[in-house]
Design a protein around this nucleic acid. Structure first.
Lengths: 200, 200
DNA sequence: GAGCATATGACACCAGGTGTCATCTCTGAC
DNA sequence: GTCAGAGATGACACCTGGTGTCATATGCTC
């Protein structure tokens, strides 16, 4: 057993391999025939297993798309807690999320995934749902941060706004065909929305 | 025939009555047993019709909740187009959405609906999906507005941020048990997120 | 009252998702 | 090396949201 991260046993390795293969397979099929026009059963069969087993790898059909595409992660929450005490909450969000954006390498796979997500309502809904979960935790982290006196409303507002910024960046990045600099766009978005006066 | 608004014929009246009754019924059942624990068939049967007919009144199970709860409307788009030419886009969004918030009367029904939405992932997802559709149109309206020179990225960013503000207000309003002043909260949110410099 | 649109029920069907059980395979302890 | 237990799989049944179709009934209009 090992904690959360990368595992070693052959079992874990094959499991990850199957996941990746299934994910790639599904993405290809989605790109060709559309998300809704491709059934789970078809994906599973194409990957050499049954529908039932597919759902043992992914909790839902939508999740096969969010393989490498981090919606937001534990790491973000931790990094926020680790930020310097006196720092402006918005600045804090900006820096942490900027680093997170920088980690997204614009591989062809990633681009296809984003394209698919952006053009499929149920996928966008799923992303939003996932991000909402993280956002709640980020909001709490922002409040818990050393030296922060932030009411819940403001904390929620800031994290919601940050999430909106990420959405906008993602959309613009897609519009550019994956060539735009996500970090730069992030800077622009965060600069524009920078709260006038904090610490009311 | 009449345009969009209130119709007169007995048919239209009964249709609206059934819709309202179904909506109230469903809301009560959801409140008691939870959204996922209540099937469409049960709601339909309780309302004296079949599952098939339920879906002739509502395109999806989620939609029975968004009866009086406007997610955003055509009116908002029009009002934006009607705003004074020189006005700051953010100011424009603020004013229009503030008026929209003021129209929300905090009835018990409304409160219950919001409570349900806020606590049910699939409903939040649906709301987001609906709002996204309007947001796109609002974004376009903002760009088309007389005297506006707004690039797509900024327009999207502003409408996304405005949507985030509405979400936050809604959540805070719910936290207060429906007693908070939505218009005032809206003012606070829009004041905090006011873009530093517009018209790059 | 004839003729038409609309609403409904009944029924079949599809797809996403889950529970269950028998079987097989890999892993770790002895 | 063997053996027991954990994990993965397939098969199957089942639930639920959602749609297509058709026959029938109920209004609405002239």
């Amino acid at each position: 057993m090992n904690d959360d991260g990368v595992a070693d046993g052959l079992r874990e390795r094959t499991r990850r391999a199957v996941r990746a293969e299934l994910s790639a397979l599904a993405l290809a099929m989605f790109a060709e025939r559309g998300f809704d026009q491709t059934t789970v059963d078809e994906i599973a069969r194409a990957g050499g297993l049954t529908k039932r087993s597919f759902f043992r790898y992914f909790p839902a059909k939508e999740d096969v798309v969010f393989g490498g595409v981090d919606v937001l992660g534990e790491q973000v929450v931790e990094e926020i807690r680790a930020r310097p005490a006196g720092e402006d909450p918005w600045q804090c969000l900006h820096q942490v999320l900027r680093r997170w954006e920088e980690r997204i390498h614009g591989s062809e796979r990633e681009l296809a995934a984003h394209r698919l997500i952006e053009s499929t309502p149920s996928l966008r809904a799923r992303r939003h749902e996932k991000r909402e979960q993280w956002r709640t935790r980020v909001s709490a982290a922002l409040q818990d941060r050393a030296g922060a006196t932030l009411d819940t409303f403001t904390a929620d507002l800031l994290t919601n706004a940050a999430s909106a910024a990420l959405d906008t960046v993602s959309r613009e990045w897609l519009r550019s065909g994956g060539t735009a600099d996500r970090a730069a766009l992030t800077d622009r978005a965060f600069a524009l929305l920078r709260p006038a006066v904090l610490g009311t």
